[in-house]
Design a protein around this nucleic acid. Structure first.
Length: 467
RNA sequence: GGCGACAUGGCCAAGUGGUAAGGCAAGGGUCUGCAAAAUCCUCAUCCCCGGUUCGAAUCCGGGUGUCGCCUCCA
């Protein structure tokens, strides 16, 4: 198992802290709005990371936070003329709904910043006492110069940052890169008591406190999108090192962006679609396939054409399953035939190589092709391929609901369809083609597709349009 | 100004020194009452210029282009 580690800039063999276990923390959303489809890429990818670790036998402990107190939430609350907590609650709920709709498994723990205020205050206090932070009119800042090696994660040095700093604002900070740990409350803002007066925590502290509380001082994997490397993750790392002298995480994983017409999709630039919007047009598996068709560290261009392609491809997978009469059951077999094993090994090798999902997905395509290839493969083998397809696909989060997708409205509906198909077969054998075609056309109007294969007439329900 | 990533067929995309996976689209054949499906065939020398090597899309140097980070940000 090799993973690209931002901290070292290299692909490394993954060595868990505890054999057989993985502790991972992914930065979640700041809940001031619906998240966009670019955010979805990140959430979805780390869902796949988690599923993969589980597939290969790891016991995974997965934490993803929700930032429910932040300047942007306060700003939105001001616009909506409601309490900030109400904005946070609304979009936190929406976040959970939307990630569910995307087929993302909920994390084992989903801490919220406001649940950890005392712990954050304790950490900040400790940093002040150790000389790594200082107060300034009710704000508290982390002194980046107090910590040798600050900037190592992003491979930046303080001098360069000084030059590049475009933020003039607070000239009273000791160093322009000093970042805020505690913010004094302005009138009307949400606030908590602290040794430095009433205020709220800065963004970079919550993840340190929550991850260390739930996963320990140092854990296996810390994840997020590429933009979080600096300053967010750098600042988390700084606080953790200042506190414990140890790294916060052994492996830092960062996913690439989803771009819109060349630019990164971003709420502040207004060029985005919410995941909600996209799910109106494309089902969750289509979105998943669209993302997983490319390596997670590469940028992806948002493209309706490619989403359409992904939809076609997904339909083909289900066609293949239908083709050999796949039924839910023991897809995860203890042993596989040589033919199946060869493909499974290829899939595993791809995933174990820094989560090469694009390569892994191509194995699924090859399986689908083989499943439908009645000429070269015996039906038993093709059925095994189907089980393998569902098994491996499941490791990527596909086919989790295949049974119900392939099933139509219960047993009676299935029997009625078989009856109608029987009529078509009968009509065809009597060369009553107008009636035979009427059966097919009428069913097509209802979204049921008939195909006359060598093995007889089969029906399938079109699922490629989401209303 | 500093740091970093990427550049593969009509489109998407894998490839990490051994002679270009896969998907979509397109064209042609077989099969078929028709349609669909299935099946067979066709479709790239990897941004440019140098270098290393028996051999490079893959390594090194130099260009060009695109993008990201340095500021809230998935």
């Amino acid at each position: 198992m090799k993973i690209y580690n931002t901290a070292t800039g290299r692909k490394e063999t993954f060595e868990p802290l505890v054999a057989g276990r993985v502790s991972m923390y992914a930065c979640g959303p700041t809940v001031y709005n619906y998240f966009h489809i670019g955010n979805a890429r990140t959430f979805l990818f780390f869902d796949v990371v988690r599923r993969w670790f589980q597939y290969i036998g790891f016991d995974v402990r997965y934490v993803q936070n929700i930032t429910d107190i932040d300047d942007k939430i306060i700003a939105q609350a001001t616009l909506d003329v409601v309490p900030a907590a109400q904005v946070a609650e609304k979009y936190a709920t929406a976040f959970i709904e939307d990630t569910n709709a995307l087929g993302i498994e909920q994390p084992d723990y989903q801490p919220r910043a406001t649940q950890y205020i005392p712990q954050m205050i304790a950490l900040i206090d400790e940093l002040v006492k150790k000389g790594h932070a200082y107060e300034l009119d009710g704000d508290v800042y982390f002194a980046v110069e107090s910590l040798p090696g600050y900037g190592s994660l992003a491979r930046k040095n303080l001098d360069d940052l000084k030059v590049g700093a475009r933020v003039a604002a607070n000239t009273r900070k000791r160093h322009p890169s000093d970042f805020v740990l505690w913010k004094a409350a302005k009138p009307g803002e949400p606030k908590w008591d602290s040794p430095w007066g009433e205020g709220r925590p800065g963004w970079h502290t919550e993840c340190v406190v929550m991850s260390q509380d739930l996963l320990g001082d140092t854990f296996d994997i810390h994840a997020g999108a590429i933009d979080l490397i600096f300053p967010h993750h750098e600042n988390e790392l700084a606080q953790a090192r200042a506190r414990t002298g140890k790294p916060l995480a052994n492996v830092w994983m960062h996913g690439g962006f989803l771009n819109m017409r060349g630019d990164k999709m971003s709420k502040s630039e207004g060029n985005f679609f919410t995941a909600r919007d996209v799910l109106q047009k494309y089902d969750a598996e289509t979105v998943r396939l669209f993302f997983l068709s490319k390596h997670y560290r590469s940028p992806i261009e948002y493209s309706p054409e490619l989403l359409d392609e992904a939809r076609t491809a997904m339909a083909n997978f289900y066609d293949a399953l239908q083709f050999v009469g796949w039924k839910p059951g023991n897809d995860a077999q203890a042993s596989w035939s040589d033919e199946a094993k060869a493909r499974r090994d290829e899939f595993i090798a791809a995933m174990d190589n820094d989560f090469n999902t694009a390569r892994a997905v191509s194995v699924l395509f090859e399986l689908a092709r083989a499943i439908k290839n009645e000429k070269d493969y015996a039906i038993e083998l093709r059925r095994e391929f189907a089980r393998l397809l569902v098994d491996l696909g499941g490791a990527l989060g596909f086919f989790t609901d295949a049974a119900s997708r392939l099933e139509v409205g219960g047993a009676l509906t299935g029997k009625l369809l078989d009856l109608l198909v029987g009529y078509r077969i009968e009509f065809r054998s009597r060369k009553m083609y107008d009636m035979a075609d009427r059966v097919r056309d009428d069913l097509a109007a209802l979204g049921v597709e008939l195909k006359d294969t060598r093995d007889g007439t089969v029906w399938s329900v079109r699922h490629d349009e989401v209303e």
